Computed example of a mutant assay.
Amino acid sequence: MPKISVIIPVYKVERYLDACVASVAGQTYADLEIILVDDGSPDNCPALCDAWAKKDARIKVIHRPNGGLSAARNSGLDIAVGEFIAFVDSDDRLEPDVLQKAWETKQKTNAELVIFNLVCTDTENCELLEPDYTVFPDEVIAPAEFWSRLFGLDGIGNYYVSAWNKLYPASMFSELRYAVGKRYEDMFILPGIIDQCKTIACMSYQGYRYTQRPGSIMNQGNPRNYLDHSEFLLEWTKYFTHKGDALRAEGLLNDAIANLAEKDRFDLSTPAQQQRYRTACRACADAYCNLAHRTGKRSMLLRAALLRLGLPAYRVFLQHKSA
């Protein structure tokens, strides 16, 4: 059985795919299973995947109808047999020794999760000076410290959040899967990952080369323009409420409410989107009700009741309160 299964979702990356797979196949840590998930790519990527499988016996290929990044990752997880899991996006590359270093860090620290650092590159694989990820040290932290560091960052939080710069035990995914059809899928799954950790090993080594390119999912506008943003904030609110961190939960909830109040941001042109919006608004009221029961604060019950009347009524309350 291979020690590490590396899952690479593939979609419309013909220009980048060979370099990506070569960077994984050429790792100094060779005990790998490499799973290429062709997510119904309409270009030459399916043929490139099959060609790689013929060249390297460690490579498996899944051809599936297009379902998005989460569905592709889940398909890879469904067949992975490695003891550990790593993800690589198919327009990115790995430094030749990053999996070796991540494995050695795992052995040294016995942390449940290992995070390796990244460097941003342009489409020609030239390193970019900004954003600067050299600020991350080698350290071993507890989940509480993980969240404190994440919430204290501005602009480079993907070091902690992204799926692709980490080495996971495969057992973490025994009941977890990525949210299909959602943007920011890494955000939705993150609490479930961190909840399984006692310690997290963070590496300063910039072993993941993250390509910044126009048209990628992460470059498609302001996150606050998508309902997925409010939805993951509500999921995180539930998580921190359950953990007893009412202050952080309320902060996340208020951010979700503020985002939903900017109704004109969202595409609500279909009944399905309108229903999603209404569901998220109701979830805000439910979240405040949950917090009230956890904290005993009656003022939170008032907020929940006003939210059930609708965001306009709640905003009037806030304006009156701050006057």
Rank of each mutant, 00 (worst) to 15 (best):
L69M: 12
L69A: 13
L69Q: 15
S70Q: 11
S70C: 14
A71K: 09
A72R: 03
A72M: 02
G76H: 07
G76W: 09
G76L: 07
I79F: 05
A80M: 08
A80S: 15
V81A: 13
V81S: 13
V81D: 12
V81E: 14
V81I: 13
G82C: 10
G82R: 09
E83D: 15
E83T: 07
F84H: 09
F84M: 12
I85N: 05
A86Y: 07
V88W: 01
V88A: 11
D89K: 06
S90H: 05
D91T: 06
R93N: 06
L94Q: 05
E95P: 01
P96H: 06
V98M: 04
K101R: 14
K101S: 05
K101F: 00
W103P: 00
E104C: 07
E104T: 10
T105V: 08
K106W: 11
K106I: 03
Q107R: 15
N110R: 14
L113E: 00
L113T: 00
L113I: 01
F116G: 06
C126H: 09
L128K: 15
E130M: 13
E130N: 13
P131I: 09
D132E: 10
Y133I: 12
V135G: 10
P137W: 01
P137Y: 02
D138E: 15
E139D: 04
E139T: 13
